[in-house]
Each structure stands twice: as structure tokens, then as C-alpha cells.
């Protein structure tokens, strides 16, 4: 169970205070799969990164399983205790470059005192589970494809038997043809009742895999509910607008010839389209 209450976070830059999280409260049940969606800069990644305190919230409280922290002024011991409750899958994989795929999965275990032989056995099982071949396990991350690297990083996240896995846009850095293999692994995790919090741009995937979708904009949760409901028939106008733009994105990219595209473009009437095409 994850329980986030009134989380606040601002960044201070040249232009003054930038409120990224403006009082976010969120509960995620054990075994639940929650997808967080929202425009760039909406605070969704910051929310995820606050859950393992890679970002330090200015105020609010976070409970994961039996660990509760309250910002500000979280003691270092509590930071580590909370971090041990989750594992993170990063957009850029962030595998340890100087370690082989196998060692990447073993390390979180040996760092916590698991004997090497046992860590290696568990690591091999986890890597097999995410579809990494025996020969690939001995390779360094730089020699692996993006899809392989992300699958190793999911195995690494599983290595610490976390209460929940936080996935920060896990497929956004992948070549299109490699997205499927990573989504398949995440789908498996969801089916095995792993608690997952996924920040994603893959709306179809969110609708399919997530139990609940949370739409964030301007540092607040605008709407949340069962995945299909929120994505197919959102209640809030902001959600509707975001989903229209998110779905029409590929169409816009190929709209080199707007005239040819317009008739088949169902969203041509949207006055808020960033390309400023007339309706």
C-alpha cells in the first residue's frame, strides 16, 4: 500500500518559484497497477521520483508498506528505509556501465548482504524471466540493445523484492520496434500482481494494463479512475484536451501536407492544436 498525502514540491530557477507538485494525494493498493499520465512538465515524473526520495518533497507525507516519512526534514535512515520499499525503472535504463548484465542484477542483492552464490542464482532466474539469454547475461550494457537494457533494468528492480516498482516512462527512449518487448515484460508483472506505478505516454498500454489512470496537470491530480473510463471517456475538459493531443501526436508528425491530412483527421476542429491548423 502506498499512501501519499498532500505532497508539495517547488523548484527555484531564474524565473522564480516553479510549483511542480501542488498538494498531491494518492493511494495505490497492493497489487494495483496505476498509470500516471499528463503533459510534459505536469509534475508526473517528479511525483514518481518523490516516492523514492530521488526528489525531496517540500511538504507532505509518504507511506509505503510499513515506512512513513514526513517532509520536510526526513532523516537519512528513513530515506534509505523508504527507498528499500521500492525499485525504479528509468527512462534511460541507467544500468551500471562497469558491470555485466548479470552483475547489474546481483549487485542490489549483494549490497544488502545476500551471499554471492545465492544472488547469482536469483539474478539468473530474474534475467531468464525477462527474456535475457544466458550468453547475453555476461555482456556489458553498452553492447545490449535498448530493449535488452530496459529488460535487465526491470530484472534489477525485481532483485530487491520491492513492495512496488516505479517506472518512469520506461519505453520513451526506445526505438519503436523495441517497445513491444519491454511492454510485454511489464504486462507480465502486472498479471503477477506486482504493485506498479507507471508514468507513461503509451495511452493504449495504460488502458490495457493499468487498473487505474491518474491524470496530472499543473502539479495537481485533475482526474483519476478506472483506466478505460478515464482514457475512453474522461470527465474533465483538461483530460479530454490532453488525450486528444496525445493521441493525435503521430498524425501531426506525419502532417507534412495538412490539406491531404485534414479530411481524415478527426481532431481538425480543435482550436488548441499546437500546429494552429484551422478547423
Amino acid at each position: 500500500m502506498i499512501d501519499v498525502s498532500d505532497l508539495r514540491k517547488s523548484f527555484f530557477g531564474k524565473s522564480g518559484e516553479n510549483v511542480v507538485l501542488d498538494g498531491v494525494s494518492l493511494q495505490v493498493g497492493t497489487g494495483e497497477v496505476v498509470a500516471i499520465i499528463g503533459p510534459s512538465g505536469s509534475g508526473k515524473s517528479t511525483l514518481l521520483r518523490c516516492l523514492n526520495l530521488l526528489e525531496t518533497p517540500d511538504a507532505g507525507s509518504i507511506s509505503i508498506d510499513d515506512v512513513t516519512v514526513r517532509a520536510p526534514g526526513i532523516p537519512g535512515a528513513q530515506v534509505r528505509a523508504l527507498r528499500k520499499k521500492t525499485a525504479m525503472v528509468f527512462q534511460g535504463y541507467n544500468l551500471f556501465r562497469n558491470r555485466t548484465a548479470l552483475a547489474n542484477v546481483m549487485d542490489p542483492m549483494t549490497a544488502q548482504g545476500t551471499p554471492k552464490a545465492q544472488a547469482e542464482q536469483t539474478a539468473r532466474e530474474l534475467l531468464t524471466r525477462v527474456g535475457i539469454a544466458e550468453t547475453t547475461m555476461q555482456q556489458y550494457p553498452v553492447t545490449l540493445s535498448g530493449g535488452q537494457q530496459q529488460r535487465v533494468s526491470i530484472a534489477r528492480a525485481l532483485a530487491v523484492t520491492p513492495h512496488a516498482i516505479l517506472l518512469d516512462e520506461p519505453t520513451s527512449a526506445l526505438d519503436p520496434e523495441l517497445v513491444g518487448e519491454v511492454l510485454a515484460v511489464i504486462r507480465d508483472l502486472a498479471q503477477q500482481d506486482m504493485t506498479l506505478v507507471i508514468v507513461t505516454h503509451e495511452m493504449a498500454f495504460a488502458a490495457e494494463v493499468a487498473d487505474r489512470v491518474v491524470f496530472i496537470d499543473g502539479g495537481r491530480i485533475v482526474e483519476q479512475g478506472p483506466a478505460r473510463e478515464v482514457i475512453r471517456s474522461p470527465r474533465e475538459e483538461r483530460t479530454r484536451r490532453f488525450l486528444r493531443e496525445a493521441v493525435s501526436e503521430p498524425a501531426q508528425r506525419s502532417a507534412a501536407d495538412p490539406a491531404a491530412d485534414a479530411p481524415s483527421e478527426p481532431l481538425g476542429h480543435d482550436p488548441l492544436r499546437p500546429d494552429g491548423l484551422p478547423g
Partner: peptide
């Protein structure tokens, strides 16, 4: 970040 996120110091 990757190391810290897996609970390492």
C-alpha cells in the same frame, strides 16, 4: 540515482 533507488548508500 540508479544505485540509490535500489537502496544502496
Amino acid at each position: 540515482e540508479a544505485g540509490l533507488a535500489t537502496g544502496m548508500t
